[in-house]
């Protein structure tokens, strides 16, 4: 294992993590909800009365974040290496997988682990595993 010290950003990543944790903490204590993005988006596809606006508001918050960030500083580099076909396949897999698995990096990886849920631990280990394996296959076996 070779560490990429040039791109290593422990402080920024920790600070970002703290913000994410604060948002999740605020959300559960004030609204009584899990800040799981796939669940919040997925619920929009099954609209129920009184269950819609808070989801839309959260997503509008996510959409607005880059704009607010740019008030204070230029956006950090965003680099998408995947082509259209890969993006389509990846998006489909993420959409199907997170709904069957009932959560993603936020719902299972942050909220679930923080509330010590065994289900979320299993889910997180599962998606981390295939995440690592897929990148290994794409970058080191197929490349």
């Amino acid at each position: 294992m070779v560490i990429d010290w040039v791109h290593y950003t422990p402080l920024a990543s920790l600070l970002g993590g703290v913000l994410i944790g604060l948002a999740a903490a605020l959300f559960v204590l004030v609204n009584g909800r899990i800040a799981g993005i796939s669940g919040i988006v997925g619920g929009l596809l099954r609209p129920r009365m009184g269950d819609l606006m808070w989801r839309v508001a959260f997503i509008v918050g996510l959409l607005t974040a880059p704009w607010l960030f740019q008030v204070f500083a230029p956006l950090p580099e965003i680099q998408v290496g995947a082509g259209t076909a890969t993006l389509l396949v990846a998006g489909l897999l993420v959409g199907i997988g997170t709904r069957y698995g009932a959560g993603c990096t936020s719902g299972h990886g942050v909220c679930g682990l923080a509330r010590l849920s065994p289900r979320s631990l299993v889910a997180t280990l599962s998606f981390m595993l295939t995440g690592f394996v897929t990148v290994f296959a794409v970058r080191h076996l197929l490349a």
Binding site: A102, V122, T130, V135
Partner: peptide, 22 residues
């Protein structure tokens, strides 16, 4: 199986593009 299978599929997609829902 739904939890594990779904999460495995999600990780596959995550590893392909480096993008998760948030």
């Amino acid at each position: 199986r739904r939890l594990v299978g779904g999460s495995l599929a999600f990780g596959f997609g995550w590893g392909l593009a480096g993008i998760c829902p948030g």
